[in-house]
Design a protein around this nucleic acid. Structure first.
Lengths: 335, 335
DNA sequence: TCAATGGAGTAATACGTATTAGTACGGTGG
DNA sequence: CCACCGTACTAATACGTATTACTCCATTGA
């Protein structure tokens, strides 16, 4: 009861291996075949319990029904909330399309593990930062890839599906402006990921539009303390806008600092977050916006699938999804 | 800048493809080679940017550092808490061992998708119920598999890594007995998964040991209401023991019924759960035990890896991990 | 009767790597 | 001068499927 190959079917059905391949492959090339043989082959395959060897098919043709998922950080980190919904979306859509998933993990060990992605028909990439060189190699080789999250590197040639942080962030600022806030402190991550840059762009544009006075702090959160908070308030700031990303570091530090300073939200100061803080926290719902992570996952899979399929023309290589606003309870109206 | 094959390296280095394969493969078969050629080949490979084709290597050798993960329910369900930690453990251990993961999803579509698992070197299975026939086929073919969760089917021949629900459940009952409870209602899932059976075995044994009066309800939760709760209390029951599984249905329904009846826990009745309810719920910590899900994932990968590697003798095909007790705050002492 | 046509299937080969049996060659010892 | 040996490689082949060019045979038409 070992492996059953096409050759075995061929022997049983009294035809050649080639014929078996043609029949089982659905005769996509239009070989002339009598219905009788077709049925004989199918019946033999059924009886022997034939299972195509995916490796061989892949070697011979170049289609696998396997989509890769490559995460630069471990895919299942402790900060579950960020990646989990994305992966859930990826899995759901892949299952719907009948594709399986290969998860590649960037082990610190071998940096060339990224090359293994070529085992799949195409690959999704996921992470705040991206190894540009390796990606460039894959692109140059014509390997289908899609990054989850907007990517500006390589002159924007990296196909991606992202969230429209620019508009969403602008909308948050506009909301604050409408609530009467005119002095705002904006806390952002220190590194230059596209998602952070996008948020900043939206924030600055909307602030300028609203004639709002905006001060920016770049921080990883470690230098935030109650004194910082008091300093801002003394400065006349009536609202804080905080970036929320994968790590959640800045937002977390801000909350701690606010708590430490004994400042009430939104009584003493309004608080908005550019994103959605991890759930499970007690207290009021923070105003901000939702990142449609599950939808991102689904859209990315669809895009990748269309890149893998040759037909149907060139699909647009980029896609931005809208982030629905979260009203929340932490924006107060000021005179 | 297309693909670089061993043949290309061979041409440049002035040797044969076979030599290239030997050199790049680390010469595991002990072919005599001069150091000079070795270096020439390595240098050429480096210069041309050679990337081994994993598909071809797999076809030729039959080992590809891929471990499958097959989930009978979608791996990323809405009830995140159950599967997520397991997968996190699986991923962490796989990364540590330098293996990649293929996620196979049981799409409702083709039941023979399970056969695709053979693309991997071995496969992990995960789910409350298991398609025994397909598993039997794989086993018979000598394909390495490990089930996460104890499995008694096929005469116990399915290698697995599970949690010791028997002992953990018994310990919970013993705890109740020590707190003076002698009339207990036990609510369990209606279906016959091994994990439910194990819990029941532990519960019954410990209850008998303690001379406790035990009443069992099999339910999917839909028929639980405040009236049920009042009925039990009128009956003299002082503690409820509820099973917590993948679905969480029974435990959830119980909580709702308790709330609806206006019964206070543990004031009016003590509550213990055989497992750990999903986090994020407010209120007191429920007494019960922890399921070491992450550890299960890691242990399963280790076991599978050892089944895939031929050497080092036959490893024990089963392994049960201990569930650490959770003291909680919902067991009161009674006279 | 011969060429043309069409139907039914197959031989040959490619895909890229791993492995094993074997070859070629320059020395050594007798 | 021959048998023998060790060194340094390579030729050949396997892995299982997909594809394409080709063969073989029976009709048909002129």
């Amino acid at each position: 009861m070992g492996k059953v190959r096409q050759a075995d079917i061929a022997r049983v059905a009294g035809v050649s291996q080639a014929t078996v391949s043609v029949v089982l492959g659905g005769n996509r090339t239009g070989v002339r075949l009598s219905e009788r043989t077709r049925l004989r082959v199918l019946e033999a395959a059924e009886r022997l319990g034939y299972v195509p060897d995916p490796v061989s098919s892949r070697l011979a043709s170049t289609r696998n029904n396997l989509l890769g998922v490559y995460t630069f950080t471990p895919a299942f980190p402790d900060i579950a909330d960020v990646y989990y919904p994305i992966l859930a979306g990826v899995e759901a859509e892949a299952a719907a399309l009948g594709k399986d998933l290969i998860m590649f993990t960037a082990s610190s060990a071998a940096p060339d593990r990224i090359r293994r992605t070529r085992l799949a028909d195409g690959c999704l990439f996921l992470g705040r930062h991206v190894p540009v060189d390796a990606i460039a190699d894959l692109l140059a080789a014509g390997f289908p890839i899609v990054h989850i999250g907007r990517r500006t590197e390589l002159g924007g040639r990296i196909p991606h599906v992202g969230a429209d942080y620019v508009s969403a962030s602008a909308e948050v600022i506009t909301r604050l402006a409408r609530a009467g806030h005119s002095r705002v402190r904006y806390l952002r991550e220190p590194d230059d990921a596209p998602s952070s840059g996008d948020r900043e762009r939206g924030v600055r544009a909307a602030a300028a539009d609203a004639g709002m006075s905006l001060a920016v702090t770049r921080t990883d959160g470690s230098d935030l303390d109650p004194a910082s908070v008091r300093g801002w308030l003394d400065d006349g700031v009536t609202a804080l806008v905080v970036e929320e990303t994968d790590t959640g570091a800045v937002f977390h530090a801000t909350r701690r600092a606010l708590g430490g300073a004994g400042v009430s939200v939104p009584g003493d100061v309004s608080l908005a977050v550019l994103g959605r803080p991890p759930g499970g926290t007690a207290g009021p719902v923070i105003s901000g916006f939702e990142v449609p992570r599950r939808a991102l996952g689904r859209a990315a899979v669809r895009l990748l699938a269309s890149l893998v399929e040759p037909g149907s023309g060139e699909p647009p290589p980029h896609r931005l999804l809208t982030c629905p606003p979260v009203a929340g309870e932490t924006i107060a109206t000021v005179a």
